[in-house]
Amino acid sequence: MLDDRARMEAAKKEKVEQILAEFQLQEEDLKKVMRRMQKEMDRGLRLETHEEASVKMLPTYVRSTPEGSEVGDFLSLDLGGTNFRVMLVKVGEGEEGQWSVKTKHQMYSIPEDAMTGTAEMLFDYISECISDFLDKHQMKHKKLPLGFTFSFPVRHEDIDKGILLNWTKGFKASGAEGNNVVGLLRDAIKRRGDFEMDVVAMVNDTVATMISCYYEDHQCEVGMIVGTGCNACYMEEMQNVELVEGDEGRMCVNTEWGAFGDSGELDEFLLEYDRLVDESSANPGQQLYEKLIGGKYMGELVRLVLLRLVDENLLFHGEASEQLRTRGAFETRFVSQVESDTGDRKQIYNILSTLGLRPSTTDCDIVRRACESVSTRAAHMCSAGLAGVINRMRESRSEDVMRITVGVDGSVYKLHPSFKERFHASVRRLTPSCEITFIESEEGSGRGAALVSAVACKKACMLGQ
């Protein structure tokens, strides 16, 4: 009897593995994704193909990295998701002549009506938060230079001027797309009239992360975010950046690689679950690469896999709870928690219980395998993109072996128990001629924006502006 049951459990697990095998990517698959990513990057950089390229390769006008001589107080704003952060950054000489960066910050959550109302409502709310922060720190009387981390696709015309191309991540505030974001912020500050600010720089969160990590390690020339969304930036040779005049030196390019796949480059790798996630998203047909990796989508992918296993009578005796059938019910943090389970399955059992399920031991094991399959594919897909960037940098610099540091931020990278190990191992397999160091950014977005502002202020002083 026991043997029969054991055989049935083994057969069930084997069927589960057959279904989950769809998520496995072979090294040849990853090399294919990497080569296609490089081709799209090239198209994004070139003037004649930029418009139709899915990977936009947006110039950021960040050319210099901090040298350690900029000092002063800077205000930093960070808008990239449902939370908005205001930070005071003091850049100065530390002990023994070292450079020191001290920060104080406060988080504000953005109400739904500000995210989806008008641009005026959104930026009025942001300036209200700045006003509140300055009151708390008794700094209303000071006109501070301000660095703005704005983590949406922007076409820069200068370091302090950028046109919002399109909202992502659930934002829909009308009247912002096609307009200068810094102008919208300046107008809102003017409307309030109770404080003055000098907006000197606007950067993407990947750029802010790279600059913040450069402060720790001067070989950091790539910034990457794996959180709600997924994106990367890197220092490109100016001669390859056709959208900006000049051939000397390097400029940081914001790849906006989340949109890779929007022209069909990933079609052969998309599964039924991916198509369902895409169809029910706020932007169907867009940001397809990001939807395979980002935390906004990972939990939902797992939920759809679990429903398939229920329908195949391989999980929960073929019956799903009402909660499990509800879109968004299986949160991405559950994926991390399930994979963090120590082996007694308590954590998995508790999560499934909150979803109205009474799982068996085998159910718990199957749910864990589903989570591992989805998150491992995410790590491997992400590795193909980064390997594409790094191999490109090595080739354009004609280096036999390139040493490089990548600064990384984002909740999936930082909080998932195995993502970074799987990701690092896969990147290294795909970049055999590179020695890569990964560092995690601390308060990256805010500190990085302030350091970019410090560079901009120093330049302005040198130019006598």
Rank of each mutant, 00 (worst) to 15 (best):
A379V: 06
E67T: 15
T103A: 09
L20C: 14
E96C: 12
L271W: 02
K12F: 11
A10L: 11
S336L: 00
L301Y: 05
G448K: 00
V71R: 15
C371I: 06
F316C: 11
N254K: 06
D29L: 15
S453M: 02
I293G: 04
G464N: 10
V33E: 01
L20A: 11
E27S: 12
Y349W: 14
K420W: 05
E70W: 15
P153Q: 03
L165D: 02
E22W: 11
I189Q: 05
H424L: 07
S340Q: 08
E442L: 12
T103P: 10
K190M: 08
M37F: 05
G464L: 11
G444V: 10
V199G: 02
C382Q: 02
A232C: 10
E196I: 12
F133A: 00
G68Y: 10
L25Q: 14
V207G: 03
L165F: 05
M37Q: 00
A370R: 04
V277W: 01
F438T: 04
Y61R: 03
G227K: 00
P66A: 14
A208F: 04
E67H: 04
R403F: 10
Q26G: 14
V244G: 03
C252V: 15
T149G: 09
L266V: 08
S76W: 04
R191T: 03
G80D: 03
N83M: 07
S445W: 00
V181R: 00
M238I: 06
M34V: 09
T149A: 14
S441A: 11
E372L: 06
L122K: 02
A176S: 06
C220L: 04
A11D: 10
K414S: 14
M197W: 02
L77P: 00
V199I: 01
E17F: 14
D205T: 00
V401S: 10
V277H: 06
I439M: 15
F269L: 10
G229Q: 01
Q337E: 12
D73M: 07
F23T: 08
I225V: 01
D4C: 12
I439T: 06
A460S: 11
K458C: 12
Y413T: 03
G356I: 03
E128T: 06
E216T: 00
G94L: 13
D365T: 09
G183W: 00
D344A: 10
V33A: 07
E399W: 05
E256N: 02
T206P: 09
R429H: 13
K458G: 15
K458Q: 13
V338M: 10
R36S: 10
L306G: 05
A384F: 01
D344L: 13
A119H: 04
D311C: 14
G162I: 03
C382G: 07
G117N: 11
V55P: 03
T206I: 01
Y273H: 11
V389C: 13
M298E: 08
K102G: 09
F423K: 07
A119E: 05
T60N: 02
S453C: 12
G147F: 01
V181D: 06
K291P: 07
I351S: 11
S360M: 14
D42T: 15
R447I: 15
A329P: 14
Q286R: 12
A378W: 01
V16N: 09
H137E: 09
A176L: 01
M210R: 06
M402K: 04
R85A: 01
E221F: 15
R358Y: 06
P417M: 12
R191W: 03
G261E: 06
R303F: 00
M210D: 00
A173C: 05
E95N: 07
L386D: 00
G178K: 02
K169Q: 04
A259G: 07
S151D: 01
E40A: 13
E312M: 14
D363I: 06
L430P: 04
M462K: 12
F195A: 02
T82P: 00
A329G: 14
N350M: 05
L243C: 13
P111W: 02
K414Y: 09
W257Q: 07
G178I: 04
E440H: 15
V302N: 03
K104G: 07
K142C: 07
K169M: 04
L266E: 13
G343H: 11
K142G: 07
D341F: 10
H137W: 07
V91F: 14
A282W: 04
E48S: 06
T405P: 07
V16M: 15
L271Q: 03
E236P: 02
K458P: 15
N283G: 11
R377D: 01
L292S: 08
S445N: 03
L463G: 12
A201Q: 04
E67K: 15
M197N: 05
L134D: 03
P59T: 01
S212W: 09
E312P: 06
A370S: 12
Y349I: 03
Q18L: 09
A282G: 14
T206N: 00
H416S: 07
D73C: 15
P359V: 09
G343R: 05
L134A: 07
E196L: 02
V244A: 13
A232V: 08
V302H: 06
E14F: 10
G246W: 12
M235P: 12
R308Y: 09
R397N: 09
K13R: 09
G193V: 01
E112P: 10
E300S: 05
A282Y: 13
A208V: 02
D400C: 13
E319Y: 14
I159C: 01
V389M: 15
G227N: 08
G258W: 03
G94W: 09
F133E: 01
G385W: 05
G193N: 10
G249I: 05
K346Y: 09
Y214S: 15
E22S: 06
A329Q: 15
L165Q: 04
M121V: 10
L58N: 07
F23H: 01
H218C: 15
P66H: 06
G68S: 14
D205Y: 00
C382T: 09
L184A: 06
D198P: 05
D274E: 06
S64L: 15
A176V: 09
S336V: 07
K143D: 04
G72Y: 01
M107K: 05
G193H: 11
I163L: 02
R327E: 15
P417G: 09
F269S: 05
G68N: 13
E67N: 08
I189E: 00
I211Q: 12
C457G: 14
E93V: 06
K12N: 08
N180A: 00
D113L: 10
N179H: 15
G147V: 03
K31E: 12
H156S: 03
N166R: 03
I211A: 15
H424N: 12
S383K: 04
K15T: 08
G299W: 01
A450V: 00
E93K: 01
D262I: 06
S360E: 06
M202C: 07
S321E: 11
C382V: 13
F419S: 04
G295S: 01
K296R: 12
L30F: 13
I390V: 09
I189R: 00
I351N: 08
A425Y: 05
R275E: 07
V226K: 02
F123G: 03
L185W: 01
V199L: 02
